[in-house]
Simulated assay, not measured.
Amino acid sequence: MTVDRDAAWQPLKGVRIVDFSVLLPGPLSTVLLADLGAEVVKIEAPTGDPARHLLPGVFNTLNRNKRGVMLDLKDPANMPRVAELMCWADVVVESFRPGVAQRIGIGVEVARSHNPRIIYCSMSGFGQDGPWRAKPGHDLTYSAAAGAMSHPGSWGQHPARSSLPVGDLVAGMMASNAILAALRERDLTGQSAHLDLSIFEAMFFCAATRHGLDQEVDLTSHLFPGNDLYQTADDKTLALGLMEDHYWQVFCDRAAVVDDKMLAVRGLDEHARRARGDALTATLKTLIRARTLEQWYALLRDSDIPFEACLTPAQAASSTHLHARGRVVQQAGQQFVPFPVTVDGHRRPAVSRTCPHLGQDTEAFFSQIQSAQQCADLKV
């Protein structure tokens, strides 16, 4: 088979996904798969996914490459359409609280009764069982309970939240990985799978990976003076990555132009810098405040030191590097950032359609898929 090296990379073409999820983690997992060629149908209640009004920008980007179907799952008259969806799908994704999907007639047992090969992914805050299964939560509270908010991100500061909903993002990415693994297993064995993915546990995985599980832990063991964010004279933010000794030494040489006292600390190795972390952090804050961001760029340019200005996503999108890499694409007058990978130097995931209006594909979609029994016969 000849591969068109300039065509979009769509390795999941032919994989069919029904997405009952809302807000961020579930839709993120399915948009990643949609970018890679899977056919994803987003199912929404007549009131729509709450993200349509809570997070319209997020909703727009997470539901590209999907068709939109409106279906009132509280209406028993729509159960035949649910059966059609289950028979049509390779994968179902839902993000209700545990027990809700079963109660409204779209649970895993219903799905398997129509399609014994289906991959069914349940995403929830704390998982499908356990004493916390019914607790409410959001990204911040899952992260706090998982240990991800216990360590400070900057020397001498209290722990602070990120602007990114890290738990939601990580959980969505892990779900897409688990779905791909389950599809591979099904291809080899014919076995269905019910995936139980918890946002809390996704963040626990991250926190344990970064900070370990020892009871007695140094809350600053992951911090390095000089590996932080600093305010410049024009109230912009400079990110410095001075972890290794050779980066620290080169920085001190350059910074001596601003304050020759930096030469006195040039020879401090990583252990010595950490021992003097409070004093060095105060010194660096004062030092960086003495010059504008542009002046620091002029001073550090070509130094082989890790440093960057803190940009907005819009500013980053306009960079020559992202333009050269082709990471921002246009579709119907809108900008999107699809799955960021390049294959064989040429092929990339594509954006073929923008976010659907509520229910815009309902009738067209159901007119195209086969009846539940016909589809079930094909899948057995």
Rank of each mutant, 00 (worst) to 15 (best):
R133F: 12
S21H: 00
K74E: 13
W155H: 09
V166H: 04
S176M: 06
H346W: 11
A298I: 11
R266M: 11
L169G: 05
L71P: 08
N65A: 05
D6T: 15
L213Y: 07
C375F: 02
A101C: 07
I288Y: 07
L54S: 05
G99N: 06
T286N: 08
P159R: 00
D129M: 12
H211R: 06
A309C: 11
N78K: 08
H246M: 06
Q231A: 12
H222Y: 08
K74N: 14
V351L: 01
D253S: 10
R210G: 04
V18I: 12
Q295K: 01
Q231D: 11
A7M: 03
Q331Y: 09
A202S: 15
G172R: 00
W248M: 08
G172W: 01
A83R: 06
R266K: 12
I199P: 03
R210Y: 09
I179S: 04
P165N: 05
K74M: 15
T286I: 09
P11C: 11
D259W: 06
P25F: 07
H114C: 13
R103E: 14
L73C: 07
E270M: 12
L268E: 08
C375A: 15
F365M: 05
V82A: 11
A193L: 02
M79G: 00
H246P: 10
T312Q: 02
A148I: 12
L188D: 04
N78G: 09
L164H: 09
A309L: 05
R67P: 04
V41T: 02
E39A: 08
P80F: 12
I305T: 11
G326M: 06
V257Q: 11
H194V: 15
L33S: 04
L62D: 00
P356E: 08
A160M: 05
K66H: 02
T286Q: 14
T362I: 14
G212L: 12
T209F: 09
A175S: 10
A182L: 04
